[in-house]
Design a protein around this nucleic acid. Structure first.
Lengths: 144, 144
DNA sequence: CAAGATTGACTTATCAATCTTA
DNA sequence: TAAGATTGATAAGTCAATCTTG
């Protein structure tokens, strides 16, 4: 009736949560300490920058960043208020928009990356061999 | 100067985030679908129940659940308003409190557990062998 | 009517300031 | 003065309703 998971199942779940929040907290903490925006902004800036001059539909961001529709809307509003992205009406679909990055947005992403990358290197790159990282990726891929 | 992490480092980070949020979203989604409180309440109820009749100091909860002081304070306020826990003045330290669980709190934890456990079993227990789970735990332990 | 996107109302999270006691 | 805990003000997240166009 209880269908209690095995100890190793619970242990993996606990470790998964602790590991992800430890790295995430480290990243957010360093960004904040440098006076930079939260990590979520980086993800948006990267996707929009990659999309180039044509920009990206908010719907595409929802899919890639796994955000709800309203979350995307409000996140883009903040980025636009900060002058990092712009929204323009969509030529082929009057309901939608195309989001593009500004020069300030590109600069902001470039300032954020070394901080972000530094934490990843310190917390992941320096602590595992390539083989270990690949083994971990293969295991975690089966959870998502 | 860029100190860009290896591809496998970034890949592990991305997988880690996706895996943890996939399982977490599944748990929260099932709890909500059953009309139950969020997972954070379960963690508090479990710790407080384990503490027994003497209860637990809010400070102890902060350490175990890695919550900020104000987070603990507001979380406990909601649990108390829901009748699941109670705060009593602390005999040995006039500044502090002792939090204990109520019978309604015990019942709520028992109702939440099968839902929580079911997701863990389906998403983790059923997808990995014991050896794989132990290997994953060993790897993730080095990130926390 | 359905899809893309936004918004109002409400809840939860965060920071800094505060209160009480050690 | 510092530690345990709370709170006011503000930011961010969430749900449902809405608006506009396909």
């Amino acid at each position: 009736m209880e269908n209690t998971p095995d100890d190793s199942t619970v242990a993996l779940w606990v470790r998964l949560m602790r590991a992800s929040s430890a790295v995430l907290d480290a990243i957010e903490g360093r960004l904040k300490a440098e006076g930079l925006p939260p990590l979520g902004w980086y993800d948006v800036l990267l996707e929009v920058e990659r999309a180039g001059d044509d920009g990206l539909r908010p719907m595409a961001l929802e899919e890639r960043l796994l955000l709800p529709q309203y979350g995307t809307s409000r996140l883009l509003k903040r980025l636009e208020e900060a002058g990092l992205t712009v929204r323009a009406p969509c030529p082929e679909d009057g309901r939608g928009f195309r989001v593009t990055i500004t020069e300030a947005g590109r600069q902001m992403r470039r300032r954020m990356w070394p901080v972000y990358a530094g934490v990843l290197q310190a917390r992941i790159g320096d602590r595992f061999s390539v083989e270990e990282r690949k083994a971990a990726v293969a295991l975690l891929a089966r959870l998502g």
